[in-house]
Amino acid sequence: MKKRKINIAVTGLNNIDSPGPGIPVIRALRDSKKFDVRIIGLSYETLEPGLYMHDLVDKSYQVPFPSAGTEALLERLRYIHSVEKIDVIIPNFDAELQNFIKLEETLKKEMGISMFLPTHDQFEERHKANLMEFGKQHGIQVPFGKMIFSTAEIPSLTKDFTYPVVVKGKYYDASVAYNPEQVATYFNKLSAKWGLPIIIQQYVFGSEVNVTAIGDGKGNAIGAVPMRKQYITDKGKAWAGISLDDEKLVSIANKLLASSKWRGGMELEFIKSAAGEYFLLEINPRFPAWVYLAVGCGQNHPEALVLMALGEKVKPFKEYEKGKLFVRYSYDLIVDLKEFETISTLGEL
């Protein structure tokens, strides 16, 4: 079958110790049997490794930080589109998603660029701060959580929690605290980095299991692959993981995709207690950095997302291979100064 030529712009090229999903998404697209892809990398910083991975990324452009707002982003995308004729954009960062969601209609109407993103309401309701409510709404157990805005609230946490508790940043990062002093330390660290509020969540003992999933926005689960982290970095990131044979977990994920009518890729993070109960810890509104494991297991979620972005109907995946591992590695790219100079001064490479 002849592959269809398509230009896809992808963000999240920071393939570092806390990796962005961009490179795994690109690898998935390069594996596609349906598309012959030209990849346009969109980067925020000049040292994102994906910029220099020329076997994966055909051309790269810097884009303004999310804090610059939608107008600056739109202006930059107009220029990039004028050169590259982008068909689809896949944003991969939580922090940039709101801007892209706001621009989805404009990009489609003005430039014919397609995306397949959660709606603004879906994005908001799964927020860490709203997760308990989300769990209630969709019949999924979520550990008790509470937002705090000041260290003065820490002593009274014992009314609602028993130690240890998990202290979470607004967007990223989480640490387990065993006493109020540790909560205060993490509060200061996380609020300085991500702002307020800080989320306190009851710690649940068990093993961490995650699901990478994709929904069609109409209540159909297109795919879901569960994974257990086997090697965890000090940032809590999976450096190795294995796909699980866990029907209960897949059915919870499918139920959530159906009841929330989730549109696009997502990652669900659960704790499985010793009693076999699942507690939803977090929902990330985009593919995880380990999404390439799903491809290895027979479900190419990024390819399915592109098809749906182009308005095509996608049949749900029925199977995936269990007991398949991913093992991450780091690799030193040797880069000519000229390349670094080009991206730093011209904003494209």
């Binding site: 257990r228 699980l244 044979d245 269990k322 007991g323």
Partner: peptide, 17 residues
Amino acid sequence: KNIAVSDSGFIFNPSTG
């Protein structure tokens, strides 16, 4: 039922990983 056991004595539990 789903436990995989190889001839070399390697045992894999796909439910827990």
